[in-house]
Design a protein around this nucleic acid. Structure first.
Lengths: 255, 255
DNA sequence: CGACATGTTGAACCTCATCAACCGACGTGG
DNA sequence: CCACGTCGGTTGATGAGGTTCAACATGTCG
């Protein structure tokens, strides 16, 4: 077989995912150890405490990373979109549960052969490192939101962020998704778990945004954003800073 | 010159920092481009938005990573202790301000020559990758705290965490520091900025812990912890899970 | 159609922020 | 040496923002 395997050629995240740095030849090697997998919404990809015996590319759909407190309260510590890479070399056990928020399509790499490939391909390792640094940046921004923003600002921040992430990653699961009109893939309770609020508070703040004409809600899940800039202002997001973040992300995923 | 340079030989973080993976020869190369630097408490190491033209090892003291919201509220998104590595390859600009919380001793590496060394030394790059993954784990745990814990739980978590980190990293700045008795290097306002609370609330919850005999306060900064297990229980920290984290950290820093 | 999940809205309550008074330690200058 | 201001810390009173509990609306599926 020569050229790229047909499955990878047709892969929508071929260039933006970690695979973007691989030559056709290298990609073929990776393809040989990879396996596609579909996970239905609300099913786990892996559980907190499990051995990390696989790595994943998210091809389509959204994966929630969930931590649970001893007393049962739970919190979403991250969301993974198409093109994202799931799993960290050097962590032998998962520190959170990964659960499909929507129907999800994954590309799975068994740990041992994947790490062997990593060892002989510094470019790939460096690429995963880049992705990890971006995750850390996002996580630190999130601590700012959780530590210092009001419920109104949080909900606005969430809408702003998800609008941008979904249009950038080109999530198939969002029918007719453009930056300003899309279908929310989360329940109010899930949004609450992500923002450190209760579902009632999320509902109230969404109503408030609707009353102020900053968003429209055709149904509870169909969202139209009147103006991203307005939303960013409400969310206390420094639009300039955010543009830099996004451009870096784009670069990293296209070079 | 043969063997290790004398400065590095005497360095207290020689083996636990990123330098731990370097042979004497490689360490000499690194030493040639490095420079020691002292930063007095409350002075900046670098500012949000600055070009990232240097990397740092923290040798002694504690560095705060601070983000500021457009409306002026600020939040501490991370603390760096001795042995920690400051700066991320691939981020051209700093996303936060780094400020000395105590008097700090740093080892500085100018960007260009350091990245050249990285390129020819995959072990070193991998080591920094490990450190970044650990930072991400810590950051995710922090989002759990900010999203779901009460003020009482937060203050308990903070004391628990700082007690463990300081004893592990062997901070010289903590005179007579052992795991159960140490001097707090932060004001109430700084703790509040780290926990997403106000300084008054921090003060009240510390008093509450004192009244419940879980800690003693000889002065406002001299803390004795009656029992780490008790503190962990109050903080809703799963002690078992935490032990795993710590052991991994130890391994990573001694192998 | 009824059953069940999801979402909205209201009312009461509680935690934490805010504003303010006060204390002790420290440093400075008259 | 002491009066004074400053800084860090504690404590109290009050109020706002969010949680909790509850009722009701809407939508979906057998």
């Amino acid at each position: 077989m020569h050229g790229t395997c047909s499955r990878c050629e047709a892969c929508p995240v071929r260039h933006k995912s970690i695979c973007g740095v691989l030559s056709d030849e290298e990609l073929n090697k990776l393809a040989k150890i990879s396996r596609r997998k579909l996970v239905k919404a609300h099913n786990p990809v892996f559980m907190d405490g499990d051995d990390a015996d696989q790595y994943f590319n998210v091809i389509d759909g959204i994966v929630k990373l969930v931590k649970t407190l001893p007393d049962g309260k739970q919190h979403i510590v991250g969301l993974m979109y198409p093109t994202d890479f799931l799993g960290h070399p050097l962590s032998r056990q998962h520190k959170y549960t990964a659960e499909a928020a929507t129907d999800v399509e994954l590309c799975c790499f068994p740990r041992a052969p994947f790490e062997a490939l990593l060892a002989e391909n510094p470019k790939l390792e460096r690429r995963i490192f880049e992705f990890t640094v971006r995750e850390l940046d996002i996580c630190r921004d999130w601590t700012l939101l959780l530590g210092r923003k009001s419920s109104y600002e949080r909900v606005a921040s969430f809408l702003y962020m998800i609008a941008r992430r979904m249009s950038i990653s080109g999530c198939k699961c969002i029918e007719g998704g453009n930056e300003l009109h899309f279908r929310l893939p989360f329940t109010r309770a899930e949004i609450a778990d992500y923002l450190g609020l209760t579902l009632e508070t999320v509902s109230r703040q969404l109503s408030r945004l609707k009353n102020k004409k900053i968003i429209e809600l055709r149904t509870s899940r169909e969202i139209s954003i009147a103006s991203l800039d307005l939303l960013a202002a409400v969310a206390q997001i420094d639009a300039c800073q955010d543009d830099i973040d996004m451009r870096q992300g784009e670069q990293a995923s296209t070079t």
